[in-house]
Design a binder for these strands. Structure first.
Lengths: 170, 170
DNA sequence: TTGGAAAGTCAACATGACTGACATAATATC
DNA sequence: GATATTATGTCAGTCATGTTGACTTTCCAA
């Protein structure tokens, strides 16, 4: 890597971003940003009979149509009882449909209906708008750094899953 | 904006980080990283009679000793009834103490006791350890980008508050 | 002196997590 | 073919954290 400035001050100066104060600022940044990040879809959902849990389910079904209940369970990191309540209402309301697995008939593969895709679009457009504005304000190299830090923060299993998902850059 | 036909190479290439796919990846990165981010303190707190809400209160009281209930309310973005439940148990258990305001006797200023500071240290050390590892893995310039994007994502009021807090770089 | 702000409290309720127990169907294994 | 395991679904109960609404006390300020 290239040394910014002199070579002498290397150790201490290059590690300044790891002080406790800096780390605490990072923690607060995560907290405040995440709140803003969820605020827009939450606003849309209030009044509807759905909540953040429904949004998350719909998001991942959209991203990976045909995924099984079990996979969704792992990705969301909740119990099947918790997911089931959410999924049941989405199916009853005709936003999600299930198809029995061809190979393994125990599995249910999940798909969004037209209606479900409509809600997904509405929610994700609100969220993407904020993300887009933040990306634009911060610039491409900041975005790369943002993604790198978040990825490094994830639990290894989910990082692996995350890495396999399409990102349009390939 | 620029025409998609004409200056295609330049504009298009520089804006590739704003495609919907890229934005969706950012959304997922936030989701997975935030889960990991809260997992360690949550693990410590389970078993104790406290939860994430207590952690947040303790964090901000530590960061800004003597802040009033009203300020904490704004920072945390919850109702006073919700905060009060949390604060009451922390006071009863001797983790937080309140002092009546000198100037305005209606105000209660919040401070951590020794015991409260102990819990804060324990929780935040777990969280900082993960943050430190992520920062170290991603490097200083990624960290700067990370912080820039998160800051741009916040709601303006909290961004203002966030900016005034000490970060050890000034 | 009166209006409003800061804080605290009670009650009722919603959401989204959790555990534990149990049922059904299909696959996998012995 | 009998048995174990897996994938899914469901019922019941609990907990943490948020909400609204109503009301009180204290105290500052116009």
């Amino acid at each position: 890597m290239s040394e910014p400035g002199a070579g002498a001050k290397q150790g201490g100066e290059n590690l300044l971003f790891l002080t406790d104060e800096q780390l605490r600022k990072g923690i607060e940044a995560m907290f405040f940003a995440y709140r803003a990040f969820t605020a827009d879809p939450d606003r849309i959902l209030e009044g509807m009979a759905y909540g953040r849990a429904h949004h998350r389910a719909v998001h991942f079904i959209n991203r990976q149509p045909g995924l099984t209940v079990n996979t969704l369970l792992t990705v969301l990191g909740v119990t099947k009882q918790s997911l089931n309540r959410v999924l049941r209402t989405l199916i009853e309301d005709g936003l999600v449909e299930t198809r029995v697995g061809r190979k393994d008939k125990r599995e249910r593969h999940l798909y969004l209906t037209e209606k479900g895709a409509g809600l997904e679009r509405e929610l994700s457009e609100a969220q993407r708008a904020r993300m887009r504005a933040a990306y634009r304000a911060a610039g491409p190299s900041a975005v790369a750094g943002f993604r790198d830090v978040l990825e490094a923060m994830m639990d290894p299993d989910l990082r692996r899953y995350y890495s396999t998902m399409k990102d349009g850059s390939a």
